[in-house]
Design a binder for these strands. Structure first.
Lengths: 239, 239
DNA sequence: CCTCAAGGTGCAGAGTCTGCAACTTCGCAG
DNA sequence: CTGCGAAGTTGCAGACTCTGCACCTTGAGG
């Protein structure tokens, strides 16, 4: 099933922004600091729990002042579960390059699988993040909230592509909300199953399921009560 | 067009929990205090903005101590955008009463439209909430996050109904994430259009769109560039 | 009445986060 | 290579959020 016939080109530059873009020294240092802070936060929290780690300690671990920590992240939670600030524009940029007549769900599929392909580059962050959220469920709201601004931004872009009013027309909001929800579900699934299969594959399958109208899963095929296969999305793919 | 043929019974007791359940004096007082606090918070923030209102002032406006405020809400944001703490169990309770062989998306549709029917009972809270979030976009993450715990709880219930493993099986997470996203999108749309049409109708339409695989909207019917109709979801309904 | 438990309150203290005013470092001409 | 402006870092003061704890107050039920 990962043998998708590549329905569209989708061969751009993913660019997670944590990417190794060869920029000036300043820019590189900034990225490094940001990354160091995030990693320090995640590592500390992973071993002690959210409440037992202060911004003081995180900053110290990354060798910067607390003030600097707050120059990079709006809050402790942001450091743990926040998205890269450039992600929104990156995704929108990829979106506008999709063929204008492509159905929105299809465009989003392309853009988001592309994202899912590049995101896990930063393996440790992902793993830690999932572990930390699992261990501190009260971070869940923050995790979900992290994509809120993103969602709004992308919905605006979709509205523009469709040439409809972004506030009164329901469609862009809906597709984007649903698409982002699917990506989040995929991410959680990926984390819950130990990152066994590539994230973009899972995201692709979820979009298949979406496009098929989320059909109910096979109604108890055999009768084995402990059915717990690795991952089995209803729709096999629209290849 | 809201003349939906009522595909399923869905005639239970919605019960928003801000419901007027005739309980003991203690219980009534608690509800009243909670409501007073929420309302006070929303009103103050609506006119001054989030950062210009302190928990002190909110508590004062509701005639309780700050400490009590925090007994009711985990944070200022929680008071503004948080869900009622009983909502999760209420929804799950309704969910388990759906016929066992009903497709999950259908069950969720029933439960969530029912919720959408009862929620707007508390008109002022809804209106203020939407207004406040619109005026303070940095609340958006909190708004999205508010349903995170809910989502997890419902997904667990769906997994149980389907008798699959809630952590390794992707389906429950996906349907629920998507369904909740649809409800949120509907809520936002409803707010953005001045609550012109009943929320449950909108939610119903969104579920139609979901079940139909989120088809692209009609590709520019005439050619009028300023097309801004009241609300026009692609799928007319699967009646 | 009387008692118990649930809820409300005040206080102290830890921690988060922001504005401001230096100070240091990078990028870029001249 | 030298110097200047922009960008980034830092420390500090201070407002605010949130929690634990001990002590009251009040509704529920004998």
């Amino acid at each position: 099933m990962p043998a998708a016939p590549a329905p569209a080109p989708e061969r751009d530059r993913p660019a997670t922004a944590d990417d190794a873009a060869p920029a000036g020294l300043r820019e590189r240092k900034k990225r490094a600091t940001r990354h160091a802070l995030r990693l320090a936060a995640l590592r500390l929290v992973a071993e002690r729990g959210v409440d037992a780690v202060t911004t003081d300690e995180i900053a110290a671990a990354a060798d910067v002042s607390v003030r600097t920590f707050f120059n990079y992240f709006a809050s402790k939670e942001d450091a743990l579960v926040g998205n890269d600030p450039t992600l929104g524009e990156t995704l929108v940029a990829e979106l506008v390059e999709r063929p204008a007549d492509e159905p929105p769900l299809e465009s989003l599929r392309a853009v988001l699988t592309s994202y899912a392909r590049s995101a896990p580059l930063d393996g440790e962050v992902w793993r830690l993040r999932m572990r930390v959220v699992e261990a501190n469920p009260h971070l869940l709201p923050a995790l979900h909230g992290a994509s809120a601004q993103l969602e709004r931004r992308i919905a605006a872009a979709v509205a523009e592509r469709l040439d409809v009013d972004p506030v009164t027309d329901p469609y862009p909001r809906l597709v984007v909300a649903v698409a982002v929800a699917a990506v989040r579900a995929a991410t959680q699934h990926s984390g819950a199953t130990g990152f066994a299969r590539p994230l973009d594959t899972i995201v692709g399958e979820y979009f298949d399921a979406l496009a098929a109208g989320l059909p109910a899963p096979p109604p108890r095929p055999g009768g084995d009560p402990a059915r717990t296969g690795p991952a089995r999305v209803p729709a096999p793919g629209r290849a």
